[in-house]
Computed example of a mutant assay.
Amino acid sequence: MFLFFQKKALGLSISDYSIEIVSLAGSMGKPELSAVKRTILETGIIGKGKILDKEKIKNILINLLKSPNFERDKTNRIVFSMPETQSFVSILEVPLGLKAKGIVEFIKEQINQTLPFSLEDLYVDYKIREREIYLVASPKEVINEYLELFNECNLRSVVIETEFESLSRALIKNKKETALIIDIGAEVTNFGVFDEKGLRLSISNEIAGVKFTQSLEEGLKVPKEEAERVKKECGLNPEKEEGKIFLILQKDVQIGIIWEVRKIEEYFLKKEGKKIDRIILTGGSASLPYLKDYLTYNLEKKVEIGDIWSKIRGAKIKSEELKEGFIFYQASIGAALRGLERNPQESGINLAKKKEL
């Protein structure tokens, strides 16, 4: 009888380079992993988070959903983890004396001053948290294209949220701690600070996996394929290849990650009076050999690779595919976890509601 009433949800993450989808069943307290699937995308299908070739991405998604485990689950409820490149996040301080009826006008003014889009071209959602407003906006064109894609794949989009929202749900164990999630992707590294209120700070830079490879190409004067190989094999191990790989990569890591983290720590301590308790790495390039150890030593703080198993410990299936590449599925698992909540549509930011101001 209990199994009949189990909730099921799909979590989906799409980047310029890959698509990951997972199926969870059960509850937030005891989620069960039913299926996982990942496909590398060829260039030109997704670009900077936007759909460039709708037919190709539709066929890929339909084929993923045809795999036996997904067909067995027979659920079409999906939570989509939106690419950070197409979501604009702001933490706004509410001016003293501003009354509730003036909130919307205040948000409109801030959007017009800070975002490179007109208000009419954006879907917006926000949450008021004490004396601040957590605001997320995304171009209507982008959201509508994804919603059309899901509809054509017979999927019902329950929620569209930011990738950081999904990652924090999957990776942060103690919400009372102040945690910094560093998402090191192919082209962009995103930094997000979270505390008991949720996301408090979000910034990014373009020093990530592709830049690491380019630096090795130039420094070693080797083809891209060879640079990619030594990056994955040696990483920041100073004993490999006479330390040549280490010396090249550490320059990018110092500028792109370590300096950025120190600025974030200084800013957050000054603004909130809080220190960063925990640093969590995620994203494909976070698995670079010895990166975690190098950051731990230089930042004098424990740095860890995100652990999804702490949130899906009750899972009946731990797929070999997931074990080998678990870091790629963290956003999609976090998205699916929201789908198991009692009221996922209203439990956080949701751009699928297509709210306008």
Score class of each variant (00 low, 15 high):
Leu199Gly: 11
Ser347Cys: 14
Arg342Lys: 14
Arg131His: 13
Ile349Leu: 13
Ser87Ala: 10
Glu260Asp: 09
Tyr329Gln: 09
Ile19Asp: 02
Ser166Phe: 01
Glu228Trp: 06
Ile181Phe: 03
Pro344Thr: 13
Val22Phe: 06
Ile258His: 09
Asn151Arg: 13
Phe194Tyr: 08
Glu260Ser: 04
Leu269Asp: 11
Asp183Cys: 14
Leu249Lys: 13
Lys323Tyr: 14
Tyr17Asp: 15
Tyr123Thr: 03
Lys224Asn: 15
Ala336Ser: 08
Val230Trp: 00
Val79Trp: 05
Arg129His: 14
Leu295Lys: 06
Ser15Gln: 09
Glu130Ile: 03
Ile107Leu: 12
Leu33His: 05
Glu346Val: 01
Asp293Leu: 14
Pro95Lys: 05
Arg229Asp: 13
Ile45Glu: 04
Val124Asp: 03
Ser87Lys: 10
Lys316His: 01
Ile40Trp: 11
Lys244Asp: 02
Val210Phe: 09
Ile308Ala: 09
Tyr329Pro: 08
Glu346Phe: 03
Leu351Tyr: 08
Thr39Arg: 14
Ile279Asp: 09
Arg131Thr: 13
Ala331Glu: 04
Phe164Asn: 02
Cys234Ser: 05
Gln6Glu: 15
Leu357His: 09
Phe150Thr: 05
Arg338Asp: 07
Val94Lys: 13
Glu346Asn: 04
Lys221Cys: 07
Val188Tyr: 02
Glu242Leu: 09
Gly306Ser: 00
Ile349Ala: 06
Leu291Asn: 06
Ile276Asn: 11
Thr178Lys: 07
Ile57Pro: 08
Lys175Met: 13
Leu119Tyr: 00
Val193Lys: 01
Phe70Gly: 10
Glu148Trp: 08
Glu320Asn: 11
Met1Val: 15
Glu148Val: 12
Ser319Gln: 02
Ile258Ser: 08
Ile264Asp: 08
Leu24Ile: 11
Glu145Phe: 05
Lys74Trp: 11
Leu147Gly: 07
Asn69His: 11
Lys197Arg: 15
Thr178Tyr: 07
Leu155Glu: 01
Pro95Phe: 07
Arg313Trp: 15
Lys301Ser: 08
Phe117Leu: 10
Ile312Lys: 03
Pro223Cys: 08
Gly11Leu: 07
Gln250Gly: 00
Gly334Cys: 12
Val136Trp: 03
Ile62Asp: 08
Phe5Leu: 13
Tyr146Gln: 04
Leu351Lys: 06
Ala137Asp: 02
Asp252Lys: 06
Lys263Gln: 00
Ser67Arg: 14
Ile40Met: 15
Tyr290Asn: 12
Glu320Gly: 11
Leu33Tyr: 01
Lys292Tyr: 04
Val89Ala: 04
Gly235Leu: 01
Ser319Gly: 10
Ser287Met: 07
Gly11Glu: 05
Lys101Ile: 14
Leu201Pro: 09
Gln214Arg: 14
Val159Ser: 00
Leu155Arg: 08
Asn59Glu: 13
Ile258Met: 00
Glu241Thr: 13
Ile172Ala: 00
Ser87Gln: 10
Thr39Pro: 04
Arg129Thr: 12
Lys271Phe: 14
Thr178Glu: 00
Trp309Cys: 06
Glu304Lys: 06
Lys197Met: 14
Asn237Asp: 00
Phe150Pro: 04
Lys302Gly: 04
Gly348Arg: 04
Lys311Phe: 09
Ile264Gly: 07
Leu64Trp: 13
Glu225Tyr: 03
Ser138His: 11
Ala186Pro: 06
Lys54Glu: 14
Leu10Thr: 12
Ala335His: 06
Lys353His: 00
Leu12Asp: 12
Gly192Lys: 12
Leu41Gly: 10
Glu321Cys: 05
Glu32Asn: 09
Ile203Gly: 07
Ile349Trp: 01
Leu281Asn: 00
Val222Cys: 12
Ser34His: 11
Glu242Cys: 02
